[in-house]
Design a protein around this nucleic acid. Sequence first.
DNA 1: AACATGTACAACCGCTCAATT
DNA 2: TAATTGAGCGGTTGTACATGT
Length: 242
Amino acid sequence: MVRTPCERNGVRKGSWTPEEDEKLVKYITRYGHANWQQLPKFAGLARCGKSCRLRWMNYLNPNVKRGSYTKEEDEIIIKMHQELGTKWSLIAAKLPRRTDSDIKNHWHTTLKKQAKNKLERFNELIISKINNEEQVDTKGMSSTSSSNELSTLTTEYVPQLSHYYRTLIANQDCLTSTSKESLGKFWSDHYMVKNSPARNDHQLPKSSEEQFIVYYDDQLDDIFHQLMEELPEKNYSYEFLQ
DNA sequence: AACATGTACAACCGCTCAATT
DNA sequence: TAATTGAGCGGTTGTACATGT
């Protein structure tokens, strides 16, 4: 990709030329990069410090790993994205020599789609489970493999969703701290979902139309029902399923 | 062959936050 | 303590290339 170079106030913008790259690499190799603001002036570059920093950090630094991602790296990124959201620098910290910028690009171009498909499949399976439609397999898989897939996907998504609901509960002023604690524990131990966006911003539902369905196991006692009654109904609706 | 659409990714922009003055 | 500065971060854009119609 080559951006059309342009100049504003003598500061060049756009794609870097091989000559500029060479100047930057030579300078940093020799003197380091203690001050990015001053660096372009001393390195003889008509660039802003920010541009130099970006070029070095993401492309010219020999420690940066570029090229295709392994399956393991993809899995780490997807998992970390579920846990942390778009904290690319934290995600990059788990992938040696990959940059936050490169991971972000890879996410937007490739992994986002994969993750979306996975989540849609997860919701599909959960809903069919809720509706006792396990036998009806839209993807032509057997009931057993469908259940296994659901189990795998649930393991992947529960931490994120339980965090979301725990945050929701924590923000309800009408609940006592004991209630909040019990509900918080509930989300750590049980399952949920339908129309419950697997949000990564952990915010309260934005629309009063938003609804979630609670799917839970037989061990759950009445406490959940009681506590849910304490929540202001206006904010959202919910259903209980067994 | 020509055009439209999708994909990949380099680069920029605006913002935040910590360090410094 | 407040203001300033610079580094870093995440979102977005612009463009080349690939693929589809």
